[in-house]
Design a protein around this nucleic acid. Structure first.
Lengths: 228, 228
DNA sequence: GTGGGCAACATCGTATACGATTTCGAATAC
DNA sequence: GTATTCGAAATCGTATACGATGTTGCCCAC
């Protein structure tokens, strides 16, 4: 009703409102999303709220059961691992598909982000580190020539974002290794290495993060991952 | 209205009804989906129809514009190519992740489907051939250990399904080559070849279909695809 | 004849209302 | 004390209604 909000439809308002609560952990996994309650809080009817929730369902952020209602998706770390593996695949390919289109300036920007990450290592803040990590990779794959694949990568990032804040808070030692691998990737891109090589290294980079997590948290399980 | 349909909610009925029309080309790209009209045909109110359309929007089958309405997504073959490339990536990986879990019987089933495809080559029917092709690959990746990746593969298949009936109707010569590659893949799986090898061959198999299409339809353009 | 404006129409967005389904608790039987 | 049934409360699913927005075509001025 106010000024700026009027530009978005109510269902979009509801959508963003809920999504933000989920991201900020105010609605944690398992939280019950009651239509009427949310509608009341946002001062609108249930219809737009319903629509918003169905959108969130399509993105996998909430689960919906007929005649029962919606709740924020549970996130056993099984789901986390699976998404990480998918991301490793998609991001590796997207980075390769983007590599040739990156300018010297893009590489410079990425490197400066990585330098920031190095500095952060001193007084380690997993959350900040993860944010920088995402920024770094986003620079590398943003020029991906295949927009569909870009969509998929970003959807997967979003999914992970709400699944877990940061792998690095679980495996601190991985961070230092990670920034070194970043530099390797940058060098490959600068030198115009074969795209297959860039893809392979990028993929391994993320797989390694997942592996580190697995070894740290579930030392006895092995995920059937091809030796990418 | 009948018996079985009652189990699904109206919004789901509407969802499937519309989706089928799109798949069967009755609603072709650009077709205007008017809420009231559809609601009338299905003998329900507009509310469930709205919901169904938003779901379809989330899957990318329809485009939605505020205060204007929905229409079936336009499908330049640019979108087709991008989806094919994404599928080549995802399917290759899913097949590799599934390979070790396939039983001798699975391989047998796949091979018999492929034999059917060979027979079809005589009196070539692109549509039937494509259906068998999907069945063949579905057998190979269905045991994929990573359910998230399975979801992604299937979503991409669905997307392609409505984008274009069959690449093979454009490039008839590709079909014969395709069934030979299928046999190669089966042999690799039977022999327990390295997963990386299976992934590579599977990926190339689909890329090759895309390449054949490109050469046939757009001989002068080159898609920036890594030499997977 | 052509361009701009206005009016009628088509369609969407959201509110309200109510029947349908599920959930939860209390009362009862054993 | 535990299991079972019944009923009330909570919540969802859908219909109907109406105001808001966009679209179309006609009419008039030039």
């Amino acid at each position: 009703m106010s000024e700026v909000t009027a530009s978005r439809s109510k269902s979009q308002q509801a959508y963003h409102w809920i999504k933000q609560r989920i991201a900020s952990q105010e609605f944690s996994p398992g939280y019950r999303l009651v239509l009427g309650t949310i509608a009341g809080e946002l001062d609108m009817s249930v219809v737009p709220v319903r629509e918003a929730i169905r959108q969130l369902e399509a993105e996998g952020l909430v689960m919906f059961e007929r005649n029962v209602g919606a709740r924020v998706s549970m996130v056993d770390d099984t789901a986390y691992r699976f998404s990480m593996q998918a991301l490793s695949l998609l991001e590796g390919a997207a980075t390769a598909l983007s590599a040739r289109a990156l300018t010297a300036d893009d590489v410079r920007r990425a490197r400066s982000v990585n330098d920031l990450m190095v500095e952060t290592l001193e007084h380690f803040d997993p959350r900040a580190f993860t944010a920088l990590n995402q920024e770094f990779h986003a620079i590398l794959f943003e020029k991906c020539a295949n927009p569909r694949m870009l969509e998929l990568v970003q959807a997967e990032w979003a999914r992970l974002g709400h699944l877990r804040d940061s792998t690095f808070s679980f495996v601190p030692g991985r961070a230092a290794e990670s920034v070194r691998e970043h530099e390797n990737i940058l060098v490959l891109i600068e030198n115009g290495a074969p795209l297959a090589e860039i893809e392979k290294v990028s993929r391994r980079h993320r797989s390694a993060t997942l592996d580190a997590y697995m070894i740290h948290e579930h030392p006895d399980e092995v995920l059937g991952l091809p030796a990418f």
